[in-house]
Amino acid sequence: MFARVVRMGKRSAALALAAGLVGGGLAGPAGAEEVLRAVTAFPAPVEFSKSFLRFVDKVNDLGEGVVRIDYMGGPEVVPPPQQAQAIRRGVIDMQYGPGTYYLGQVPEVDAWVGSTITAMEARENGGLEVMREVYQEKLGAYLLAHIDTGITFHIYLTEEPARGEDGNVDLSGVKLRSQPIYREFFDALGATSVSVPVPEVYTALERGVVDGIGWPLVAVQDLSWDEFLTHRIDPPFFQTDLVVVMNEEKWGSLSDEAKEILTAAAVEYEQESYDYYQQNIADTDRAVREGGMEVVEISGPAAEAYLDRAFETAWDRLKESGSRHYDALRDAYYDR
């Protein structure tokens, strides 16, 4: 009984927080519990999928009897390239993964790639609302949350990189596992981009198909890639674009109370996941260094040039797409 009272107290506080965010008063229970079918873009062992499951637990705790998320699985359920369309068609109700998996349809996700602020700040300055409009317009989806922010990216290599006279790295001829967000940046460094799905990266490293990868510090050990990666380039660049989206019609069909619970969970988890990953980054950094990974540090003006080159590739891509949201998104998300 005590646990139930505590849970209801948490829900009351959450609903009070969310009521203003979804625009409306508290609604009474709608009857049958709403069930949302969810998938992730990553396999279950990857840290990011574990993060989403923590979000699921939060929703299911706050929403008991009102709304529940049923986690169906990852790429084995719906291949990542098909997940955006599965959301649009209502095959699934909720999806978590990188926005850049549908970069061709939604070039505005580059605003997250090139972001220098947190999700909490974007809720305050209007950036999230701009992105919600984009998602509704281009994917027929409701953008619920931008979680796991504050996670930045590195280049990892199987051998020490060459250096130019300016102190920057020279990756001429180096084959890097890439995806669309990295390609222009890797090209600028002289590297060759190679497309390899996440489940095949281990084998690609083992066989020398690639000489390195672009990846966050978080989760680099989850799939044992650090067995082959001996060097990491600092400073980090970009930011994760990991979002929770819903089918728009499904969102619209939910009771006010269910929407308020989901909104409150999203607001809370954006902060919680940010805090969690700051500690995770520190712990993983220590672990990989202790495991023998060497850090190639770019410093001074060379570091500034390296970061400018990285971030501007994301914003240049977005500008070249012709998005009418470019100025609003740059003002909201970029403060370098």
Rank of each mutant, 00 (worst) to 15 (best):
M1V: 12
M1K: 11
F2K: 10
A3D: 06
A14G: 09
A16C: 07
G25C: 08
L26F: 10
A27N: 10
P29C: 09
L36M: 09
V39N: 00
A44Y: 10
S49C: 05
G65A: 04
Y71Q: 00
M72N: 00
G73V: 04
G73N: 09
R88L: 14
M94E: 06
M94Q: 10
Q95K: 13
Q95M: 14
P98N: 06
P98W: 11
T100N: 12
Y101R: 13
G104N: 14
E108V: 10
S115H: 08
S115T: 14
I117K: 12
E124R: 15
G127F: 12
R132L: 06
L139W: 03
A141P: 07
L144K: 11
L157W: 00
E159H: 12
E160Y: 04
P161H: 13
G167T: 02
V169G: 02
S172M: 03
F186Y: 10
A188T: 03
V194F: 01
V196R: 12
T203C: 01
V210F: 06
L217G: 09
A219P: 01
A219I: 00
W225Q: 11
W225A: 05
F238P: 02
T240G: 15
D241L: 10
D241N: 03
V243S: 13
E249T: 07
W251A: 05
I261D: 04
L262I: 06
T263D: 02
V267H: 14
E270F: 11
Y274D: 03
Y274V: 03
Y274P: 04
Y274L: 15
Q279I: 04
D283A: 15
V295F: 12
V295Y: 09
I298G: 07
A305K: 13
D308K: 12
A314D: 07
A314L: 08
D316A: 14
K319D: 06
G322S: 01
S323N: 09
D327V: 06
Y333L: 15
